[in-house]
């Protein structure tokens, strides 16, 4: 029984080695060796409990996208975010809402007031009731939330083969390894490997958990979205840009947060130095 046990531990440690928690798992394995002292109390194991390595077809880790804001002190590339907005408006927004954002927020990624007004006015939103008690349509204003493509969940499902396109306002924060995952997903469509049968209306994606995703490949050809000054942008370029835009949408405070953090940590380091000097001085006569 003992060799089997160690095998299981080693398998578990090996499986996680690529992860940042690899050191922890070695620690855990080390702890186990010690804790074997308590092995007499070990409860009987269910059969197959040690067959740890059966998930060989797990979803791979998304590669690092290397985007501007992913560095510790990085910020959002304004041009990329604006191109990403264009991708969202022309492609994603046909199915995906962005309900937590208002058009006025777009000033943050460098749009002028006039541009924001133009983006908002491009959609018709429902307002009302008016003095006669009727709802009416009007062009959007900067203060409006982004218009959702479907009025409710049922309408969204009915138009999408039963699947619900998730809201994208928080998608980068709401997924493990957010920005890398979104970028990998958008570029991860492929033909299913031999032996994999897709369910009807599903698509094969390398990075989607379970590999079967209802969303058809949204970005398929270079130049699908025509950026000014950048004709024939590659699929990867479009994916990177829309990921930057969505990362900003999820964490619009990121730049302000990091800028404040730098100042506060510098201040605290000086404070700590002074506090230590005071402590040394106060304690000088106590030793």
């Amino acid at each position: 029984m003992m060799p089997r046990l160690f095998q299981g531990i080693r398998a578990a440690a090996g499986r996680r080695r690529a992860m940042p928690g690899g050191r922890l798992s070695r620690l855990a394995a080390g702890g186990l060796l010690g804790a074997l002292l308590g092995a007499a109390l070990l409860a009987p194991l269910p059969p197959g409990a040690l067959a740890a390595d059966e998930h060989s077809h797990e979803t791979p880790r998304p590669p690092h996208a290397g985007l501007s804001f992913q560095r510790m002190f990085g910020s959002f590339d304004r041009a990329a975010a604006q191109r990403g907005l264009q991708v969202y408006r022309e492609v994603c927004s046909n199915c995906h809402s962005l309900r937590l954002l208002s058009y006025r927020n777009l000033r943050q990624i460098g749009l002028s007031d006039a541009e924001v007004r133009a983006v908002a006015a491009a959609v018709q939103v429902q307002d009302g009731p008016n003095d006669e008690g009727a709802m009416f349509e009007r062009p959007g204003r900067p203060s409006d939330r982004f218009r959702s493509p479907f009025p409710n969940e049922q309408a969204a499902r009915a138009a999408n083969n039963g699947a619900l396109p998730p809201d994208l306002s928080l998608i980068v924060k709401a997924r493990e390894d957010g920005a890398n995952y979104v970028h990998a997903l958008l570029t991860g469509y492929a033909d299913p490997p031999a032996g994999v049968t897709l369910q009807q209306g599903m698509n094969y994606n390398t990075f989607f958990p379970g590999h079967q995703i209802a969303m058809a490949p949204p970005l398929t050809a270079a130049g699908q979205v025509q950026f000014p000054n950048m004709p024939d942008a590659s699929v990867d370029q479009m994916a990177r840009d829309v990921t930057t835009f969505l990362a900003w949408a999820a964490e619009p405070e990121l730049e302000a947060r990091r800028a404040m953090g730098v100042r506060i940590v510098i201040f605290l380091c000086i404070l700590a130095g002074l506090a230590y000097a005071v402590k040394r001085k106060v304690w000088a006569d106590a030793h």
Binding site: G8, A11, A12, A28, A35, L36, L42, L45
Partner: peptide
């Protein structure tokens, strides 16, 4: 599952 259960029980 697997070794995690064993580790948890020993600990």
């Amino acid at each position: 599952e697997g070794a995690y259960v064993t580790a948890g029980r020993l600990a």
